[in-house]
Amino acid sequence: MLEIQNLSVTVEDREILHGVDLTVGDGETHVLFGPNGAGKSTLLMTIMGFPKYRVTGGRIVLDGQDITSLPVDERARLGIGMSFQRPPVVRGVKTREMMEACLKEKGDGETVTNLAAKADLSDFLDRDINYGFSGGEIKRSELMQLMAQRPHLVLLDEPESGVDLVNIALIGQLMNDLLQKDCPMRQRRCMGLIITHTGHILNYVNARTGYVMIDGRIGCGADPHEILATVKEKGYEECVRCLLRNTPEGKVC
């Protein structure tokens, strides 16, 4: 279980998240909506542990362990994995090498070749990571690496952005594989937290709960399809009004 408790985060001395609370149970997938600049990526980057995102209050607990001050690599080894919205190009480091490093941690018999075939990236293994990849190829590569890593908590930052309609089905398939959607809920352990702007991915992946994040605060825990429908109809202004009604100060930062 992932528990985010009253989490406040600053980036370059500016507070971005203001007392965020969120709980994701084992086997559950939650979705985060929100306008640009709301703090969604900041939340994911903070859960992953990037030092630029400084926790000034609250804590992050994974399976009962407080991980708030653990470095990125230790969190990865504890089972947190992230698909980046815009991952860096790493020149000279081959995708295959990265996959082998991810698999080494797990050693569950899966092979680089099999995973590359699943992600339709067999021809990309000997290319530098993300170098010259299209938007869809980057997303598939990120998911392929996560499938090698097999994290217990999967953080997906806009997995469908830049992906064409043909490829989005494959992205959905990879996400379902990663999130163990073919297992009954009782046996499923993998948790997911997904940021989506368009909501397209909801056509392919079942998510239990959705939230809207506005100006570094979370509100509206509800069925993600309902949230999406509201946002499509009324925009995020309605969510701002809702948050105004529910924040103790009566204002959104």
Binding site: F50, P51, V72, D73, P87, V90
Partner: peptide, 13 residues
């Protein structure tokens, strides 16, 4: 950024 990206895959610094 590249170091942290690889660390997010489980490699030490």
């Amino acid at each position: 950024e590249e170091v942290e990206y690889l660390m997010a895959r489980g490699l030490t610094r």
